[in-house]
């Protein structure tokens, strides 16, 4: 049986690592992980290449290894991660130019399938947004925060690229990602003691469980999906309800003050402000809910978790946050117990 090769770019990153772990479980798949940084904990069965994505040899790699699918997961905030601290220009190079070069190389090497993760924030939050945005809605993501502009540039490039090339490209747009790991801008926002909101505004919000992010990306790879798809959990709810569901209480701020503070922090590029409010304020004011009809129809993906489940998972992880020092002990205890149980069962047998 011939194994099929999948390349994961950004394999040491948050999403790349998890995708690699899932994919490595299938004996039929051979996983190559590409990242500029070495993986913290290498995963069994994954071959790692530590290299810059933007290298002319990428085409050679794809050709000689007969790569059939690429999961392009490189997207850096420029603030942390394998790249270390990056200047905005370098971040742009990595995010936007990197995506362009991967697509070009994939096309040249006749890779069958490329899967790219994007965000529903590219639609932008506007007062005249319909409540449910279809995939073909205009991309009006405001260009205040540079990272959103990178996503927007990538999407624009892919839309152009599609017109002239027949390669399968699946772009999955996700709303805020919530789950037990606690590592996403949405979770950092929701997990604050009192997440700031805008006084008198309570838009409907949408989220997705992190397991469904992984699940849908893999599904798109395996089912050779082509096109843009919104992927989100069922169940929209007002922002304040989301905050309450994770056991926090919203802190409403009179919106002209909040906008003034935002402008100030943009000028100063304030890290703290970015931590408190990872979104532009418009995203807490106007709706930006994506329609998931195509996810169920054309993509044929059924999310495994609802919004409530995702928030509950996050909430229970928050409850244990202050006991993080005790968790390894607990794990060790459980591990030994499991081993002993197994041994005694074997003895009986």
């Amino acid at each position: 049986m011939e194994r099929r090769t999948v390349l994961i770019t950004g394999a040491a990153g948050r999403w790349g690592r998890r995708l690699a772990r899932q994919l490595a479980k299938f004996p039929i798949v051979r996983v190559i992980g590409l990242d500029i940084a070495p993986p913290e904990r290498p995963i069994d069965g994954v071959e790692y290449i530590q290299a810059d994505l933007r290298n002319p040899l990428l085409v050679e790699l794809l050709r000689t290894e007969k790569v059939e699918g690429i999961l392009h997961m490189v997207f850096t905030s420029g603030l942390s991660g394998g790249h270390g601290l990056l200047s905005p220009e370098d971040a742009f190079q990595t995010n936007v130019m990197g995506a362009m070069e991967v697509l070009a190389a994939a096309n040249a090497a006749e890779v069958k399938q490329v899967v790219i993760k994007s965000t529903t924030m590219v639609y932008g939050a506007h007062v005249d947004n319909p409540l449910y945005l279809h995939e073909n809605a205009p991309l009006r993501g405001t260009d205040g925060k540079p990272l959103l502009r990178h996503r927007y540039e990538i999407e624009r490039f892919i839309a152009d690229f599609r017109r002239n090339h027949a390669m399968n490209i699946a772009v999955l747009r996700f709303p805020g990602i919530v789950g037990a790991s606690g590592a996403s801008s949405t979770m950092r926002y929701l997990g604050q003691p009192t997440p700031p909101t805008l006084l008198g505004f309570d838009p409907l919000m949408q989220i997705v469980h992190e397991a469904d992010v992984i699940g849908s990306l893999l599904h798109a790879l395996v089912s050779e999906a082509n096109g843009v798809f919104n992927v989100a959990a069922d169940g929209v709810m007002p922002l304040s309800q989301m905050i309450r569901r994770v056991g926090r209480q919203p802190l409403p701020i009179f919106h002209p003050f909040a906008y003034a503070a935002e402008r100030f922090s943009l000028v100063r590029n304030n890290r703290l402000a970015n931590k408190i409010m990872p979104f532009e304020l418009d995203y807490l004011r106007f709706p930006w809910i994506a329609d998931t009809t195509a996810m169920r129809g054309e993509l044929n993906y059924e999310p495994r978790h609802t919004a409530e489940e995702a928030l509950e998972a996050f909430r229970s992880s928050l409850r244990l946050q202050s006991y993080s020092d005790l968790l390894p002990k607990r794990k060790a205890y459980d591990g030994i117990q499991a081993f002993l149980n197994r041994r005694s069962q074997e003895d009986e047998a």
Binding site: L204, M237, S240, R244
Partner: peptide, 8 residues
């Protein structure tokens, strides 16, 4: 409602 346990 304080806990966010309602439905829209």
């Amino acid at each position: 409602r304080w806990r966010g346990d309602y439905a829209v």
